[in-house]
């Protein structure tokens, strides 16, 4: 299935969850904020969410320091 991730076209296996995708991208779920089709998802909500054809996903990753 084809998705738009951070503005880029990506092809993923059908049934991929947000959690699997983050693992593939080597991102820690608790350090990101997700926006799936304009809806904000928290780490807990996001991880089990299944992705679908045509989804638009924005991943905002936070790094430490302040």
């Amino acid at each position: 299935m084809n998705l738009l991730i951070n503005g880029e076209q990506r092809t993923l296996e059908k049934g991929t969850t947000v959690c699997t995708l983050l693992n593939q991208l080597q991102l820690q779920p608790e350090r990101v904020v997700l926006e799936l089709n304009r809806q904000i998802l928290s780490a807990a909500q996001g991880s089990e969410t299944e992705l679908h054809e045509g989804d638009q996903l924005e991943i905002i990753q936070f790094v430490g320091g302040g």
Partner: peptide
């Protein structure tokens, strides 16, 4: 300071108070 805290408060604020602007840093 901690990245998980930054992500937590950002997601929570954007969900709970979408009409109030949030200025975060990373």
């Amino acid at each position: 300071d901690a990245p998980d805290q930054k992500a937590m408060i950002t997601a929570a604020h954007l969900q709970q108070a979408p009409g109030c602007p949030l200025v975060a840093a990373s």
